[in-house]
Design a protein around this nucleic acid. Structure first.
Lengths: 157, 157
DNA sequence: TATTGTTATACTCTATAACTATA
DNA sequence: TATAGTTATAGAGTATAACAATA
């Protein structure tokens, strides 16, 4: 009896691990390809991540961006330095709080983002197309649920 | 008519992108926690990856390991250097080919792996437990399918 | 005092490419 | 020639922590 329970626990245990290992591999295969594509636009993965956030939330300050990226504010300073040097991002003074910088895409940054995004989308699309539409939809739902749950945990802690 | 087709294509397009973004976020949240846990055992994520491979395939050579990790052989040399310095991995000469090194966990390496693995498993398990067992199983199936398909593509190209 | 951002330091990971030894 | 591994170089990302300016 105990044996059966333990076996069941052990099996459940392994399901999550196996799922995780598959996710790690899928993630690394897809993101290697992504990095290669982004390199043609002079961007790294982390930098494209920044552009994505600024495209959808212009005027973020560095601390908020750090929260979005799950990274320290020191790292954000470096990331923005590189993106500013490349001419893709601009720091503007905040008239209401002279400590903060509000971040915006430059025209060149918008241009690079608009050019890279569809290429990236096509790449990801081609990778996921081994799943049929119903499977893709299911995967999306499960990942979205996980994502929301993990974000919530973070906020609670 | 064309309009309807285009709308459908556009929507499908977005499904894969959204799924990918969720995967990226889930991956980064879980792996940040993973890194923090591994640090207590003196390991990084990449290093634990190496130990995992050597635990299941002792005697791999560096080139084969590079293939498993999707990384160049130069990187593997550095990774193994650090793991050898830490006393977790050992290079042994291959009696049949004096160019190659066969890689093995040391007793300390096995010990570190055996200690870290269940802690990691518990961590991952706790992260995935917001999904019920059926959902976890579905996720596993879909990720496994994707993983296999992507590995195959790689081999074909 | 607390917060925003910068800077310094140190380490790991990664790619590229030239090199050595062996097959 | 081809393969296994090493080494050098360079750059990115990350964490930690001390610091300045502003609130």
């Amino acid at each position: 009896m105990i044996d059966r329970v333990q076996r069941k626990v052990a099996r459940q245990y392994r399901t999550s691990i196996l799922g995780w290992l598959h996710m790690v591999r899928v993630h690394s295969r897809i993101s290697r390809g992504e990095q290669a594509l982004l390199a043609e636009y002079g961007l790294t993965g982390a930098q494209f991540d920044v552009l994505s956030h600024l495209a959808s939330e212009p005027g973020l300050n560095q601390q908020m961006l750090a929260g979005r990226l799950l990274v320290t504010k020191g790292n954000v300073a470096g990331l923005i330095d590189r993106l500013e040097t490349a001419g893709f991002v601009e720091r503007r003074d905040d008239p209401e709080d002279r400590r903060t910088h509000r971040l915006y895409l430059t025209p060149a940054g918008e241009c690079a983002f608009d050019a890279a995004a569809p290429v990236l989308e096509a790449h990801i699309d081609s990778r996921l197309e081994v799943l049929n539409p119903a499977e893709q939809a299911t995967l999306l739902v499960l990942l979205a649920k996980l994502d929301r749950a993990l974000r919530k945990e973070k906020e609670e802690c």
